[in-house]
Design a protein around this nucleic acid. Structure first.
Length: 895
RNA sequence: GGGCGUUUAGCUCAGUUGGUUAGAGCGCAGCCUUCACACGGCUGAGGUCGGAGGUUCGAGUCCUCUAGCGCCCACCA
């Protein structure tokens, strides 16, 4: 199998030296071909069926898309391919955006670049965990020892089997390999020009080593730190969640107005409004705005919480909004992130009420931190809600408040945004926990600058990055309390009391990587010392999935495992991705590259839109409107599906449209048939194709066509350079249809003439040139059908042929008058219209065709008189120079 | 609350720095079958470019205001 270097003898010929973009793979070129002759392999009845299987196998065997790693960096075009989540559904959205990237990759490859186009698999994190749990019927219990003989149950049992973390990870790896094969097959069918020798994954040794190495370096340089602090917490997944994984959802709630009696003097009770009365026991203060005249006299006095009798201060803080509720808020530890700010900035005590499972924790009223004016009554009230979920607790607390008279009026229903983990089902709580953080806040200005330096396609996507960075309010929490993922490569000493000292982590050394601290032992310790006083304990957490996938340039480029390769591909040229993960994947990759390399990870970011269902609704599993790509590929063919995708402009959401796929299929078939037709003009009686060189293009009509084609090439090239593949295919396609409708019709008779004569020679040379150029223009979009046609008359792969350049078109287009083709096509159109109106066949003969027009246009028409008469079946053409522009078609009398 | 995008034919969308009668495909209607293509070809009907105002010789295109839709961000009491 071809890997690197096999093609070294066949680097892409520069357009300047290409005649019709001669292919580069000359290994099978014959002497005959060198002389411009080649036996044709044109089938009688060409079709699209089977092209995917034939050509994807051939490309693999020939190493058509192999990366030439001998190329210096300036000769490389490198792509930071998004790794699809293999545990997820195969999704038409994948096909959409990967087609865009593939078209761009093919363009740069044809432009002579060594294209580094790897494929990655994202098999890290929670989605994989969940899939493994359901697929095998297991659950991870990190306390269990590894069982080397464990086999998953044949059928997933109702009650999940508890297995050790290493066993669980083994199953994750096993299942992801299966999933990866399904994806690879899809990509091959779609015709992605990926170099399959360069795959990577976000789990496995390479990724883990890169991720852990980067972590150790960040630790060494002070870019990461641990903090025990209030953290956004998903009570179902039982893990911390970072700011980037949050989303707001509108949820119904209610304002409850609650009266707090004064604790240290006379005066009316202070009324607050809260949506979370169940947190009353965790109340540590009331807060109002410092300028709020209503509450100013109360500052630094005390009130008592209803039900529990806790004495809490009334304090001033600017975040308190006089407009909201009663203008004074209850601070609980913790109801929302504002509470955390108040708690931190006003140095309030902590009353932890919510456990990691989202239930109310037991409280010893009357003890330190839980002081009460009446501990017995407090306990009586609290005993009714302890152990309940927040929802259940809220119901009971509201009843208690009403019974006690502290509730003022009825709850006022509202709808308000509540923070959720984007994959979660219940609102996030805030619990105190120990987490690892990357210091991103100090990098903010630098990151904003990097965002400016990056070329965004479309440009307005830069706003999303900037808004996100400007809105950062905390460092990046990279630890997750899960099992499958990259473990933190650190241990902690265990003190004589048996408690781990998290403040003194023992880092692994880089040469130990990758490692799992739950099974491996830190330097200077023995396995027997794990978990015992005076010994050590491994960090129990794993890294956030983005903490690893933010290193895809390093992982795919093999970073320090292969510094030579890394130097040739980094910083990469392109990051293609969807807009929904700008704040996660794009942002975190920029952060890591800034920390590791002090540079942007890539120069360009091409942001694709989403695929919507045929009714323009966002696809989601829960709605059941997810469209899977394989049936569409089978029904319409890969080129047709790619055609639909390529017409989705960068950054624009696009609906699944089978109509567009049918159009794409028709286009692919047209390419087959038109090519067959044109090549039929080029083959001699022996089936040999003998094409005159472009210097034979002398007829004004042919020159006009070539000039038009040159314009299309220029436009498509410019568009591709700006990542506007959609414009490139649109212009190419428009030209191709008029080429078929008008030009082919006009020259088909002349091209059959004596090849030794200038007219036929010109037509034949122009046909060959136009066909070659158009096949190459279509190649990034329709890789299968263009390769099929290319194989009929050229050697090598069209995908390794040179992108058409001005040089091969400028000369034959010299002195061209575009009007010759324009006017002639217009007149031909009028002839067709006349025949249609008369309900005649297109072959119906025309007795006299009279064209009246300006001298200039008549002169242009005169240059193609014979072609026009042949194409229109015109017996006599009369031209009149006059002020008006008329075309009169006199059909011959029917027999 | 702040910001971004979008609004052009029944549908999906082009329209590049303002420049003649606003384009394409689908759909629709009609016509044409053996000589590349019925998995086809040709032809046609169809739009006062969301609304209002302004700049200009000239506005789908630039400016202001405004409405609908979609999205991003935000300290959610």
């Amino acid at each position: 199998m071809a890997k690197f270097g096999d093609l070294a003898g066949g680097s892409v010929v520069e357009p300047e030296h290409a005649r019709y973009g001669n292919p580069i793979m000359t290994a099978d070129a014959t002497g005959e071909e060198a002389a411009g002759r080649r036996p044709t392999g044109i089938p009688d009845k060409p079709g699209l069926e089977g092209l995917e299987a034939t050509w994807s196998a051939r490309w693999q065997a020939d190493g058509t898309y192999a990366f030439d790693r001998s190329s210096p960096r300036e000769g490389v075009y490198s792509i930071d391919t998004p790794p699809p989540t293999v545990s997820g559904e195969l999704h038409i959205g994948h096909v959409f955006s990967y087609t865009h990237t593939d078209a761009v990759a093919r363009f740069h490859r044809m432009r002579g670049k060594a294209v580094f186009y790897p494929m990655g698999w994202d098999d890290n994190g929670l989605p994989t965990e969940r899939r493994v749990q359901n697929y095998y019927g297991v659950r991870c219990d990190p306390g269990l020892p590894y069982d080397p003989d464990f086999e998953p149950p044949a059928d997933p049992p109702k009650e999940p089997v508890a297995i050790s973390r290493p066993n669980f990870v083994e199953l994750c790896l096993q299942l992801t390999i299966q999933d990866e094969k399904v994806f690879e097959q899809l990509w091959r069918t779609l015709g992605l020009s990926v170099d399959w020798a360069h795959t990577y994954a976000t789990v496995g040794d390479v990724a883990q080593r890169a991720s852990q190495r980067s972590f150790l370096r960040m630790l060494d340089r002070g870019h990461v730190y641990q903090r025990t602090a209030p953290t956004l917490w998903d009570i179902d997944f039982r893990t911390a969640v970072s700011q980037a994984e949050l989303e707001d959802r509108e949820r119904p709630g209610a304002y409850h107005r609650i009266a707090f009696p004064r604790a240290d003097g006379p005066g009316p009770a202070v009324e607050i409004e809260t949506t979370r009365p169940e947190l009353l026991a965790a109340c540590v203060a009331l807060v109002a705005h410092p300028d709020d005249e209503r509450y100013r006299p109360l500052f630094d006095t005390f009130v008592r919480t209803p039900l529990y009798g806790a004495r809490v201060p009334v304090l001033a803080h600017e975040l308190a909004d006089p407009e909201k509720g009663s203008g004074i808020a209850m601070v609980c530890t913790f109801g929302d992130t504002t509470d955390v700010v108040w708690w931190r900035e006003l140095h309030l005590p902590t009353r932890t009420l919510i456990g990691r499972d989202g239930r109310l924790l037991p409280v010893a009223w009357g003890t330190e931190g839980w002081e009460s004016s009446d501990p017995v009554e407090a306990a009586t009230h609290y005993d009714e809600v302890v152990g309940k979920t927040v929802r259940q607790a809220q119901t009971r607390v509201v009843e208690q408040l009403a019974e006690s008279g502290a509730m003022i009026g009825e709850p006022l229903p509202i709808t308000h945004p509540v923070k959720f983990y984007e994959k979660g089902e219940r609102p996030l709580e805030i619990v105190s926990s120990r987490q690892w953080f990357v210091r991103t806040l100090p990098l903010r200005d630098k990151l904003l600058q990097r965002g400016e330096e990056l070329n965004w396609f479309p440009p307005y996507m830069a706003h999303r990055f900037r808004t996100w960075v400007e809105g950062l309010n905390d460092d990046w929490n990279i630890s997750r309390q899960r099992f499958f993922g990259v473990p933190f490569p650190v241990w902690y000493p265990v003190g004589p009391d048996g408690d781990a000292d998290f403040a003194a982590p023992i880092p692994a050394s880089e040469d130990q990587l990758p490692l799992d601290p739950s099974t491996e032992v830190p330097p200077g310790f023995t396995a027997e010392q794990r978990g015992v006083p005076g010994g050590f304990v491994g960090d129990p957490d794993v890294m956030d999935t983005w903490a690893t996938s933010s290193l895809t340039p390093q992982i795919a480029g093999r970073w320090e495992d292969d510094p030579d390769l890394f130097a040739r591909v980094f910083p990469m040229d392109l990051r293609p991705q969807a807009h929904d993960i700008i704040r996660t994947w794009l942002f975190s990759t920029v952060v890591r590259s800034e920390i590791e390399e002090g540079s942007l990870p890539w120069r360009n970011a091409a942001i694709s839109g989403w695929v919507l269902d045929p009714n323009r609704k966002k696809m989601s599993k829960s709605k059941g409107n997810v469209v899977t790509p394989l049936p569409l590929l089978e029904q319409h063919g890969a080129d047709a599906v790619r055609y639909w995708a390529a017409n989705g402009r960068p950054g624009t959401d696009t609906a699944v449209d089978e109509g567009q796929m049918k159009v794409g299929r028709r286009l692919a078939i047209k390419v087959l048939n038109a090519s067959r037709f044109a090549l039929g003009r080029l083959a001699d009686d022996a089936g040999q194709i003998d094409v005159p060189g472009p210097e034979a293009i002398t007829a004004p009509l042919d020159k006009a066509m070539v000039a038009g084609l040159a314009g299309v090439v220029a436009e498509a090239t410019t568009a591709f350079k700006g990542y506007d593949y959609a414009r490139a295919i649109e212009r190419t396609e428009a030209f191709f249809w008029s080429f078929c409708d008008d030009y082919l019709e006009l020259v088909k008779t002349r091209a059959y003439g004596d090849p030794a004569q200038p007219g036929p020679a010109s037509a034949r040379a122009a046909l060959a040139l136009a066909l070659s150029v158009q096949l190459r223009l279509f190649a990034p979009f329709l890789p299968f059908v263009t390769e099929e046609v290319w194989s009929w008359w050229r050697s090598g792969s069209v995908h390794r042929a040179a992108w058409p350049g001005q040089s091969e078109l400028n000369e034959p287009a010299t002195g061209a008058d575009p009007a010759v083709l324009e006017v002639t096509a217009e007149v031909l159109g009028a002839v067709r219209r006349a025949k249609t109106t008369a309900k005649q066949s297109m072959r119906a003969p025309v007795a006299v065709l009279t064209v009246t027009d300006t001298r200039q246009r008549i002169d242009a028409l005169q240059e193609a008189t014979e072609d026009l008469k042949d194409a229109g079946g015109v017996a006599e053409l009369v031209t009149v120079i006059g002020p008006e522009s008329t075309i009169d078609v006199a059909l011959a009398a029917p027999d």
